[in-house]
């Protein structure tokens, strides 16, 4: 199937006066209609910058796209006009943010804000837009939607606000939704509900979802494909099941080891594995593999040469000594 959104060799640099600092380098991924791709990584790995660049809302001119393509259907969004982007944003490509309460205007009722989105892209009357807004709020299972549509955001809980945000994102029947850590600011119980809601919306409308998260468990549940990012590059990508059952990159393996999942049946819990050290700051990357200083399998070659993303069966891994290969040997 032809992907609806395809990113090819996307690079994003930050320039604050002097030397440009690479934030994202040569990242490629694609997502098909009705499918979900998870972009996973620690804070500062460039996943949010990638998300912002898809909407072309990077904090320009300090941070900007310096190379690559973002193919949406037959258009390249990197070179699209600002006018065209305004048409696409919120309508064809929409976004859900991390902090739902802060993402709503505090002095407008949620209903007015949804009506605003609908009327930005459709020439319909205020009354019709309002009816549509109530319908959208019902579809995201906001209890008592007719009454709550007149509420200001501060009267709604975080989970309810995220429902409103999802309703806003769905207003234009978008083809792609970018969800940037949609559940991070919410309670654990609400997180599951919000993810279920996104999936429901996806099956009903066939939108593609790009899920940006640092939560591997969420990625495993929601996505078919996953791309793991480290220091501005994708280091492993492929079908979610394969990667989670047998990670090939030591970093992915480290991330998986840091999930507390052994707490079943009262068995004594082994201490969580952690990855020593921190993500290198952008602009201070080592010359070899960016993960080399923290990798437990590091070899001399890793310190000198940078591994490229190479195909290993169904997936692509950027490591000279991936696990599957070692198992095969």
């Amino acid at each position: 199937m032809r992907p609806i959104l395809e990113v090819r060799e996307l690079s994003i640099h930050a320039s604050s006066g002097g030397q440009p600092i690479p934030l994202v380098e040569k990242v490629s991924f694609s997502v098909e209609k009705g499918a979900t791709l998870a972009l996973v990584g620690e804070s500062g790995c460039g996943k949010s910058m990638t998300a912002l660049s898809l909407m072309r809302i990077l904090p320009e001119p300090a941070v900007r796209i310096v190379g690559g393509e973002i193919r949406f259907e037959d258009e390249d969004l990197v070179s699209a006009s600002e006018r065209r982007m305004e048409q696409l944003r919120g309508n064809i490509i929409s976004m859900i943010f991390q902090d739902p309460i802060a993402s709503l205007n505090p002095i407008q009722t949620v209903g007015d804000q949804i009506v605003e989105v609908i009327r930005t892209h459709n020439p319909i009357s205020r009354k019709e837009a309002r009816a549509r807004a109530i319908e959208l709020l019902r579809s995201v299972r906001l209890p008592d939607a007719e009454r709550r549509i007149n509420y200001y955001p501060h009267r709604l809980s975080g989970g309810m606000c995220q429902r409103v945000m999802i309703a806003m994102a769905m207003a234009g029947a978008p083809k792609v939704i970018i969800a940037d850590e949609p559940t991070t600011a919410l309670d654990t119980t609400v997180q599951a509900q919000v993810m279920a809601l996104l999936r429901k919306a996806q099956t009903e409308t066939g939108t593609a979802i790009i899920l940006i998260t640092h939560n591997l468990a969420a990625a495993a549940e929601a996505a078919e494909n996953v791309a793991v990012m480290y220091a501005g590059r994708i280091i492993e990508q492929g079908p979610v099941r394969e990667i989670f059952l047998s990670p090939a990159h030591p970093y992915t393996e480290g991330l998986l080891g840091a999930i507390p999942d052994n707490a079943e049946g009262g068995v004594e819990i082994a201490p969580l594995a952690e990855i020593p050290g921190n993500v290198p700051r952008p602009g201070t990357l080592p010359s070899g593999c960016a993960f080399a200083p923290r990798c437990k399998n590091v070899q001399q070659r890793c310190r000198n040469e940078r591994p490229d993303l190479t195909a290993h069966g169904n997936r692509r891994v950027a490591c000279f000594f991936p696990y599957s290969q070692m198992i095969a040997q």
Partner: peptide, 14 residues
């Protein structure tokens, strides 16, 4: 700097 302004941009407001 507030998130709601960014979300206005993402819904395509001028």
């Amino acid at each position: 700097q507030r998130a709601f302004v960014e979300s206005c941009v993402t819904i395509g407001m001028s």
